[in-house]
């Protein structure tokens, strides 16, 4: 373990104060965490803030995007005070469009063969290794898995990716897209079983206000709380969490 890891008891601090409290200090280093939620739930912002916070401590990170072009991603992130362009320019945070990599590898854009998946996995591992990355994001694993033809390929891909990155002591966030207001962690019902952790970003409607909610469903190796929090995205502080006062699901059951 590095000195930083020893200092943090082998935990990777997200830098989001309340989240680190929920996790009992942070995420166990080398974990693969599924960040799951519907459209607009805050997955990308949470993941980017995780990377940026790490970069501010000198931990190199890489953000692989499949769902959003890089120029749009950076434009959207620039409105947040936590986003520091200098960290991108210095190479502490690397933004990579996975579609471009796939094209350069000559991979089929629609469906990957076993060989294609293997080639992609190797390139992801090589990039992480070469850059000595400590934090990695794939946004989204759903879009990537869409190209993998069988459940076995999906399971194999995520398992091998997670294992390789864990060996590099790289903590990984994989975003997973699910339909709104459904208690589901992934499209394929596979990703959550391979992952070490699951962070669920949901919605809750109260008095006409559609609120974002946040819950750590699972985190292997961490003494974490499973309480549901309200999540706000502020330009000043990024992700902000506060305990939920009342759940509408509780109110419905009373009716």
């Amino acid at each position: 373990m590095s000195n930083a890891e020893l200092k943090n008891n082998g935990l990777c601090n997200t830098g989001i104060e309340t989240l680190d409290e929920i996790l009992g200090g942070g995420i166990p280093v080398g974990s693969t965490v599924l960040v799951t939620g519907s459209s607009g739930s805050g997955k990308t912002t949470l993941c980017m803030q995780f990377l940026i916070n790490g970069a501010k401590k000198g931990e190199r990170g890489v953000f692989f995007t499949i769902t959003e072009p890089l120029f749009k991603l950076t434009k959207n992130m620039e409105s947040f005070d936590f986003y520091d362009k200098k960290l991108i320019e210095s190479g502490l945070v690397n933004l990579i469009d996975l579609r471009i990599i796939s094209e350069r590898l000559g991979l089929d854009t629609e469906k990957y063969t076993v060989e294609d998946a293997s080639a992609l996995l190797d390139i992801l591992k090589d990039i992480a290794d070469e850059l000595n990355v400590k934090r990695l994001v794939i946004d989204s694993i759903t879009a990537l898995c869409y190209r993998l033809q069988t459940p076995e390929m999906i399971r194999d891909f995520i398992f091998k990716l997670g294992s390789s990155l864990a060996a590099m002591k790289c903590t990984t966030f994989l975003t997973s897209e699910v339909p709104p207001q459904k208690f589901k962690y992934s499209k394929n019902d596979i990703e959550e079983f391979i992952s070490d952790g699951i962070i669920f970003l949901g919605d809750e409607e109260r008095e006409g206000d559609l609120m974002r909610t946040f819950q750590v469903v699972k985190m292997r190796g961490a003494a974490h709380s499973r309480i549901k929090y309200m999540m706000y995205l502020s330009t000043k502080n990024g992700v902000e969490l506060t305990p939920l006062l009342s759940s509408t699901s509780k109110i419905k059951s009373k009716e």
Binding site: R206, E207, G208, D209, M211, M230, Y232, N237, E240, T242, P243, L244, L245
Partner: peptide, 15 residues
């Protein structure tokens, strides 16, 4: 935005 956003109110007070 609304007096119904009590969690938001609590957060801003703390901040």
């Amino acid at each position: 935005e609304s007096p119904t956003m009590l969690e938001k109110l609590g957060l801003e007070i703390n901040n």
